[in-house]
C-alpha cells in the first residue's frame, strides 16, 4: 500500500488534532494525555504523533500527521516529516508571542519552508487580531521565506480544506 503524508505542526492547543479531524475519514488516532502544562487551557494534549487518513483511488492512503507541540518532542518531527508532501504550520494568535513561537517551527521544518512546501495557518485571528495576517506575511518575507498565510478556524471544515488546497498548490 502506498502512503503519502501531510504534517500539521504548531504549539500545544493550536488546533492540529481538530484540523485533522475535519478531513480525516475516521476520528484521528490520538495519544492525548492529561495536560500538565498550566499555560494551556485544555484538558488533554498530544504528546506523540497522531494521525488521520484519507483513502485515495487504488487503495493509496493520505495520512495527516499531527506532531507534538511541546518543544521537548521536536526530535519526532524529523521522523514524521520524512517524505511528506508538505507541512502546515499552525500559529496560535492567543499566545503571548505567537510569531516568536512560529519561528521555532519554521526552523524545525526548514527544508519544507525553504522549498515552499509549507503553509502558515493563523488560528484565533478573529478574537486576537494582533499580530495581523499582514504581520505574518511581512515577517516571512523579511526572513526570506515567503509562504502563504491563511487565517483558519480548525473547527470549520471549509477553512481546513482551503488550507489543504493552498498546500497542494505550492508543494
Amino acid at each position: 500500500m502506498i502512503e503519502h503524508k501531510i504534517i500539521f505542526a504548531g504549539p500545544t492547543g493550536a488546533g492540529k488534532t481538530t484540523a485533522i479531524g475535519q478531513v480525516s475519514e475516521r476520528p484521528p488516532v490520538s495519544t492525548d494525555v492529561i495536560n500538565s502544562d498550566a499555560r494551556y487551557n485544555k484538558a488533554t494534549t498530544t504528546v506523540a504523533i497522531d494521525f488521520g487518513e484519507i483513502t485515495l483511488d487504488a487503495g493509496e492512503k493520505l495520512r495527516l500527521y499531527g506532531v507534538p507541540g511541546q518543544h521537548r518532542f521536536s526530535f519526532v518531527w524529523d521522523i514524521a516529516a520524512r517524505g511528506a508532501l508538505g507541512v502546515i504550520l499552525i500559529a496560535d494568535n492567543s499566545l503571548p508571542e505567537p510569531m516568536k513561537e512560529l519561528q521555532f517551527y519554521l526552523d524545525g521544518f526548514a527544508s519544507f519552508v525553504k522549498s515552499g512546501a509549507a503553509v502558515v495557518v493563523v488560528n484565533r485571528l478573529e478574537t486576537h487580531p494582533s499580530p495581523s495576517q499582514e504581520d505574518y506575511v511581512n515577517m516571512l518575507i523579511a526572513r526570506g521565506t515567503p509562504l502563504p498565510v491563511c487565517a483558519c478556524d480548525p473547527r470549520k471544515k471549509e477553512d481546513v480544506l482551503t488550507v489543504l488546497d493552498v498546500l497542494l498548490t505550492v508543494c
Partner: peptide, 20 residues
C-alpha cells in the same frame, strides 16, 4: 505578497490562484 484574505472579500478559488 500573500493577500490578507482575512480582510478581503474573495471567492473560494482566490487562495488557490494566489498560491499558484
Amino acid at each position: 505578497t500573500w493577500p490578507s484574505f482575512f480582510k478581503l472579500p474573495h471567492y473560494p478559488t482566490f487562495p488557490r490562484m494566489a498560491a499558484a
